[in-house]
Structures are given as C-alpha cells and as structure tokens.
C-alpha cells in the first residue's frame, strides 16, 4: 500500500504570490518553498491566508509563479484535500475514492480503494453514501480519496481537524507512512500535529502575511509526541503563534 510507484520527488517554489480581498492584500510578494519529498506545515491565526496560499499553489486562486523543480507545470501532479470533505453525495464512498480515475477516463481500481478505506478505518463502508457517515468518518474518506490519487505532491488543508484525539493520532501515523517521499504542504491549527508530521514548520503572520523561518524538528515523522524535544518545540511554536495573532489582528 506504500508508495510503490516510483515517485520522483519534486520541489516547488512560489514567487511573488499575491492575493487581496476587498482591496486589502492578504499577502503580497510572498516567496516560499516546498522542499522535495518533505512535509512543510503551515500554522497561523485564522484568516491570515493559509488556506488561500494553499489554494494558490493548487492554481485555484490568486496570482504568483508556482515553479516546480523539473520546470513542468504542477497541474495533474498534485492531490488536494480541502477543509470540507467534498464527497459527492450521490456516489458511494468507494465511488468517491475512484472519482479521479473516472474524471480522467481511466479504469478505477476498486481493490486499492478498499485497501485505503481499511487503512483509514472505514472497512466495509464502501457501499454507503456519505450522508450515512459521521463528520469524522467523512473526513477520513476524504483523506483516503486524496491518497488514492497517488500524486508526488499533496496539498492538505486541516485534514484531521474534525477527528477525535485518538483517531487523529492514528491517522497521523498512517498519513506519515503514506506521504513519505512526497512533497506535502499541510495547513493545520494544531502545533503538535505540525511537529509530528512536518519536516519544516512555518508560522504565517501579519498583514500582508509573511512566513517566519521554519522550525525543523529532528528525526523522521511520525514523531513521538512524548519526546521532550518535541514538547519544547511545541512551547516555542505556541509562543510564536501568540505573537503571530497579535501581529495579524
């Protein structure tokens, strides 16, 4: 189930990103990079523009140059997971997982969909409609759909926010394994989640927003949340977030 297809990691750099709402610049002339094969986490106060920046990388809004290290466009090589689950209500959960294949006119792989459903703890729920699932289950189905795409770049917006603490912990482990080797951008509100999963953790703050220098926790994800070094970094992150909130307000 791991990334068996040879994924050649690509790094992404974003230059002069700008986006304004109602005349006020959310961010302007913003540069940042997503290193190849690593998970870059983005924290910051609500409304600072984290989601917008992620959508900008996905080509869904804003302006700016998104350049891949191999000079080919990013389109068709990233998987996107939004805050909302975006499951199609008329399709079964399994058909939602294979949506990408059907949209591209490829043959769906139901066996892989089943395996991914099992991995996110939804074994046997493939024939249900999304309406029959709880909020947390729907989010897990959306995660499975994102992993189903099997892309070298994964852009995730608060993928675990609707989950209870234990499910979140388990899914972070599963996600870390499945996302290994991919270039990941992860927007989150949870400092501990960022420190468990991220190679680099940025705090976004100010208006127009800026990214601070990344924290780089030692070791490979998923990291142990009981590790004193991680707990120390969490304290450091919380301090940064508090001042980020003041700078943005």
């Amino acid at each position: 189930m791991t990334a068996d297809t040879a994924i050649r990691p690509i790094s992404i750099s974003v230059h002069a990103a700008r986006l304004s709402y109602a005349g006020a610049a959310l961010f302007d002339a913003l540069d940042f990079a997503l290193p190849a094969g690593q998970t870059t986490c983005l924290l910051g106060p609500s409304g600072v523009g984290k989601t917008s920046l992620l959508r900008l990388v996905a080509g869904l809004e804003g302006a700016g140059a998104v350049v891949c290290s191999d000079d080919r466009p990013l389109r068709g090589r990233y998987a996107w997971m939004a805050q909302q689950d975006l499951l199609l209500p008329w399709l079964t959960v399994a058909d939602n997982l294979t949506l990408g294949a059907r949209l591209r006119g490829e043959t769906p792989d139901p066996a892989r969909a089943d395996a991914l459903l099992q991995l996110v703890g939804l074994a046997g729920r493939g024939d249900d409609r999304p309406a029959a699932l709880s909020g947390g289950m729907r989010q897990r189905a959306a995660l499975a759909r994102t992993l189903m795409e099997d892309r070298p770049v994964v852009l995730m917006d608060e993928p675990f926010s609707a989950l209870d603490a234990i499910t979140r912990y388990q899914l972070q482990d599963a996600a870390a394994e499945l996302l290994a080797g991919r270039t990941v951008m992860l927007v989150t509100h949870d400092p501990l989640e960022a420190l468990r999963l991220g190679h680099r953790v940025h705090v976004m703050a100010g208006r127009p927003a800026r990214l601070d220098d990344a924290l780089e926790p030692a070791g490979e994800p998923p990291r142990d949340p009981r590790d004193p070094a991680i707990l120390a970094l969490q304290a450091e992150l919380l301090t940064r977030l508090v001042s980020a909130k003041k700078a943005t307000a």
Partner: peptide
Amino acid sequence: GWTDLAHSMD
C-alpha cells in the same frame, strides 16, 4: 469546492 476538486484531479 466540487469543481475545484475536479480541477485538482485534472
């Protein structure tokens, strides 16, 4: 959101 998702799925 659905059309954005479809866009991301090429």
